[in-house]
Design a protein around this nucleic acid. Structure first.
Length: 358
DNA sequence: AACCCGGGGAC
DNA sequence: GTCCCAGGGTT
């Protein structure tokens, strides 16, 4: 497939704009063009999946401080990695990054692969992340397409960008552009920076855009119509019952199976609200495998995920400290000092449950 | 191709 | 409320 490429003058204008407007971010070298730690690029790119820069910054800094190398991450216990990810969301990213670090230690001598095929085999590294690592860390002319890059190309070339063919065309454009640039890292970052700060989804700042004169969408006044918006299905509500059981300043948490939502994280036991409030005692006793007594309603917590709205009735109650039974989705139980919650991998939903009962 | 997976910021 | 973010994996 042969595609058009933005003319050299326009590409140069974008690069000059980037040099002047480049944000200072902790995963970027202070000096443009300086060498980057491939591991740091890897960590940042995983964290940035579906997550805004401002949200990632503090997590990245803490994570790199705690796990400064592939080796330290590979050697770390799962619980500690998830604790470091706690609150960032999409926890599978953390599990896959951890698996990836172990894979790199075991099969690549501890060095992040610079070979595209090897990189593609690392858990959690998809087409975007592979392109980012190859170009940003290794200076290779690898293309990358994320939400912002797709939007920029969609507008520059007024693409009918829906479906598989649209995505393939966008990737082809990305490849064609990076192929004619001398500095792939600079080009790819400039593209993303433009999409993130100027070529915005709504009300793009075309007046501040270095390539607006070359933008087909701008010429036609259809910036807001690109990229094509996909209608979203309504989010179904899931009704739940949660038990916040306390014992001498500690709270009962179960670790969720890795194939479940919030996989690998700890939370107060949560069950489907079958049978209504009256059945809560039975439901929760079955979940922990021990009698739950002295149940009282503490309130309600609502938490919105991408595909579900969770509404949980929160109960305080008493559970004998043991025995507790491991039963799906809970693999293991422990009593945690509520002041040490920061050391445990806990979702924001779980945090809300505990907070509501306090 | 459709669906699943968190959380938050901007409007 | 809606949109969408430096996406990847599974079915």
């Amino acid at each position: 497939m042969t595609v058009a490429v933005l003319e050299a003058g326009a590409r140069r204008a974008l690069l000059k704009w980037f040099d002047a407007n480049r944000r200072d971010l902790p995963w970027r070298p202070a000096r443009p063009g300086a060498r980057r730690d491939p591991y740091a690029v890897w960590v940042s790119e995983i964290m940035l999946q579906q997550t805004r820069v401002d949200t990632v910054v503090p997590y990245f800094t803490r994570f790199m401080d705690r796990f400064p190398t592939v080796r330290t991450l590979a050697d770390a216990p799962r619980d500690e990695v998830l604790a470091a990810w706690s609150g960032l969301g999409y926890y599978r990213r953390a599990r896959l990054l951890h698996d990836g670090a172990r894979d790199v230690e075991d099969h690549h001598g501890g060095g992040v692969p610079s070979n595209p095929d090897a990189l593609a085999g690392v858990p959690g590294v998809g087409p975007y992340t592979a392109g980012a690592i190859l170009s940003l860390a290794f200076g290779q002319p690898a293309a990358l397409v994320d939400g912002t890059v797709a939007r920029v190309f969609s507008r520059w070339f007024v693409l009918a960008d829906g479906g598989t063919k649209g995505r393939a065309l966008t990737w082809e454009l990305a490849r064609a552009h990076v192929a004619v640039e001398a500095d792939p890292a600079r080009w790819n970052e400039a593209l993303m920076e433009l999409g993130a700060t100027v070529c915005l989804p709504r009300s793009p700042r075309c007046g501040a855009c270095p390539v607006s004169a070359h933008c087909a969408a701008r010429a036609g006044g259809v910036e807001e119509l690109h990229p094509r918006k996909v209608p979203r299905a309504s989010v179904p509500t899931e009704r739940l019952q949660a038990l916040v059981a306390r014992l001498r300043g500690r709270v009962l948490l179960g670790r969720r199976a890795e194939d479940a939502r919030f996989g690998g994280l700890w939370e107060p036991p949560v069950v489907p609200a079958a049978g209504g409030t009256g059945a809560a005692g039975r439901n929760l006793s079955a979940a922990v495998g021990a009698p739950v007594t002295a149940l009282e309603v503490a309130g309600t917590v609502t938490h919105v995920l991408t595909h579900r709205r969770l509404t949980a009735r929160v109960f305080r109650g008493v559970v004998a400290s043991r025995p507790l039974r491991a039963r799906h989705p809970y693999e293991k139980w422990m009593w945690v000092d509520v002041r040490r919650l920061a050391d445990v991998g806990v979702s924001t939903f779980a945090r809300k449950l505990i907070e509501r009962a306090s």
